[in-house]
Structure formats: C-alpha cells, structure tokens
Amino acid sequence: MKPAPLDHVRATGLDHAIETLVAAGEDAKILAGGQSLVPLLAMRLAQPTTLVDLGGLRELDYIRDDGDTLEIGAMTRSRTVETSPVVAGAVPLLPAALRYVGHVTIRNRGTIGGSAAHADPAAEVPSVLRALDAELIASGPRGPRTIAARDFFDSFLLTTLEPDEILTAIRIPRQPSGSVVAVEEFARRHGDFALVAVLGAAHIDSSGRIAEVRISIAGAAPTPVRADAAERLLVGRTPTPELVRAAAAAASDATDPGSDIHAPADYRRTLATVLTRRCLTRLVADTERTEAA
C-alpha cells in the first residue's frame, strides 16, 4: 500500500494549477482533500504521474451569499460548509446531508469540490446538488464554464469534466424560506457510505398544500437519482399517507440500483421505497399535525 512514484506539484494559483494539469497531460490527477484519492493511490488503483495539489488555493475556499444563490468554493472543507450559518440559512438541505458524510475527521479534510468531482453515486453532496438544481463551475485552458448538476454526473465515479478542467465552485439556488428538509440514510455503520439515502426538501404553503418538493436518492443508480415523477405526484396536493406511499413507490421506480456484497439490487429498491416514505413523512409531519388540529 505505497503509491507508485509520482510528481507532486503544489499549485500556487488557479492558473498555475491549470497550466500544470495541461502540461502533465492525461496522467495527471487533481488532489483536493485526499480522502478518496489517497487510498486509491496507496492501493495503486490510480497511478498518476503528476499530482496537482489544490491544497494551497485559498481563492477556492469561500462561502458567498449572492442573494438568490449561494456559491461555495471547491476547496471549502466539508466541515466548514456543514457548520456555516450562512449555508444553513440559504440551503439547509446541504448541512443536513453533510452530517452523514464519513466522520468529522474526514469532513475536516474532505472538500465540497472533491465530493462533487469524485461523483460517488452513494455520496451525499452529489445528491444535494441534484435535488437543489445546483450549477457547477469549472475552469480549464478554454476558460470557465457552468454545468448544470443534471448534466454533471455522468456515471459511476465519472463526471462531464474534461481531464484538464478544475471544478472551482458550486452554485446552489437558495431554498424558499420556510423550507423543511429531511435526510433518511441507511448505512451499515455510522460513517459508512450509504447503501441508500433519500434527501428531501419541501415547502408547504399556508393551506397545507405541497408548494414545492425535491427528492433525490443516493446509492440507487450509477448517478444520483432525482425522483421527478414522485415530485410531480406530490406538488399541489395535500399530503396523505396514501399519497406519500404512492410517491415512495414512484421514487423507487426511478432507481436503477446495482448489487454488491452489501446488498442486492432488490434490497436497495426496497430501501428506496421505505426511506422515501420515511423522508416524506418527516417533511409533511408538521402539516399533518396542523391539519389535525
């Protein structure tokens, strides 16, 4: 478990990082928090010739409230995002989900950009980005560009980033005030990657109807799944247990899980149903109580 020989370049600025990346060609790899990449290096599953280390790029470490959107620099540590009052106020689903990412020590090192770029389908951050229709901003030798979350996650551990592009920031639309959020995650142990996680956000209007709802599912397909059909069933309706059950079934239908040693595909599909129902039940709990009163 010792990495193969490689060159380590600590970038002094974004331009320097891009230049190094371009110069090193296909065999270069970007290093952010290292929580996913370093184990791959140690096991020689990745053998890049050059590591472009973004660790010194303070310019990519920020949280900025732009009113309608919140922008977070790619090198912002997960723990910083999770504990930021600005983030909690603008996009409460993100900190709610980050709490399930590994352990605190891992979130202290791991970055929000690394989580997005690594594109693990069971990871929480990609699912949040899908649920909230975020945009990802990348920079490369051809300049910056913006990619919608739905176009960003391509397949298992694959994104539509070009090899010479660096993810610099994510931009997330502010959730409407009064939004409720809920995360239902099933992992074998505390801190493990989810077998399946369902992330939900809703806005219930004063009449008790679901004005807006967003559901995404991690761990149940090669990319995060947005449960559009389930959302359509719910929007504009007053929640009932039957409606919630129907939406949960619809959400599960949208999944395309694989099998591994921890769970067969069927089991993951079952989890998607159960967890979506639990997630929605929590989201609408307040409403139901109001109606009953």
């Binding site: 074998r188 142990r189 505390h190 801190g191 493990d192 990657f193 040693i261 921890h262």
Partner: peptide, 16 residues
C-alpha cells in the same frame, strides 16, 4: 476475495 478493506469488512465501531 471481495472484502479487502475496512469499507467492506465491517468491524463494529463505538457507535454500533
């Protein structure tokens, strides 16, 4: 062998 890391060979931790 499919269980060759602690991500796959699940040892209970303090929280379990």
């Amino acid at each position: 062998p499919l269980t060759t890391t602690f991500m796959d060979y699940l040892i209970p931790t303090a929280t379990e």
